[in-house]
Design a protein around this nucleic acid. Sequence first.
DNA 1: CTGGATCCCGCAAGATACTG
DNA 2: CAGTATCTTGCGGGATCCAG
Lengths: 135, 135
Amino acid sequence: MSETNTRVPLTERDLTDTTEGCPVREVLDRVGDKWSVLIIVMLGQRTHRYGELARAIDGISQRMLTLTLRALVRDGLVERTAHASVPPRVDYTLTELGHTLLEPLTALDHWANEHREDIRAARERHDRAKDQQHG
Amino acid sequence: MSETNTRVPLTERDLTDTTEGCPVREVLDRVGDKWSVLIIVMLGQRTHRYGELARAIDGISQRMLTLTLRALVRDGLVERTAHASVPPRVDYTLTELGHTLLEPLTALDHWANEHREDIRAARERHDRAKDQQHG
DNA sequence: CTGGATCCCGCAAGATACTG
DNA sequence: CAGTATCTTGCGGGATCCAG
């Protein structure tokens, strides 16, 4: 509510006030779960049917697919379109809002691609050091 | 979104292969939890002591602070420096790698700031529609 | 002050079976 | 095909006490 951004990266206040609204935490709560991002990116490529998502996203249960889609629809990131046909057909499409989210998600993806090896290395180094301690 | 992005945003392959390494999922697994981002951002501003973090981050338990810090150190995002003094003093600092992560996180933060109201509105609209259904 | 070790609980989420 | 309903479990994470 005070000066709404311009270039200041992140302020301490913004992030530690858990009751009010910490923006990063807020979006992470929406998207930080196990499946939301997968679905968003799938839909970022094209509209998908329920069953397509179920088959494409390895390991997801019907229950979680439904729940996650519902949450995304509720937040205005995804639009649900039910065709009254038989057999029934339901399409899920990324909204404009959803598409805008794709960009920062992509930034995160690029970071991950660039640094995954660094992390893997750091982890291995760390674990090896620990192993030595224990003899 | 219609501009100089020569990179393909995200590929379906990258995201659906859960066994191998889906980059976004990988970083989300590291950072998508309740506290990691808060800590990273705190440390992004300056080095903090354990107790400082404990007091600054509202609601975190000692246990979770310790566990989260351990994980971040292991991944090479945070560096732990124990001073052999009495009383003991331990400083936590963001590493170079940790700082690079701050950028995509900031992108996410900006998105959140710009669109939190959209989400709130969408949610309210959605909930109101549901209420009407139930009479 | 900086943690480690335990105990414990709630809820996220998987499996399964059923329905319009 | 696109969900819903129910049952069950794992484990994330809080509280508390102990230790160097």
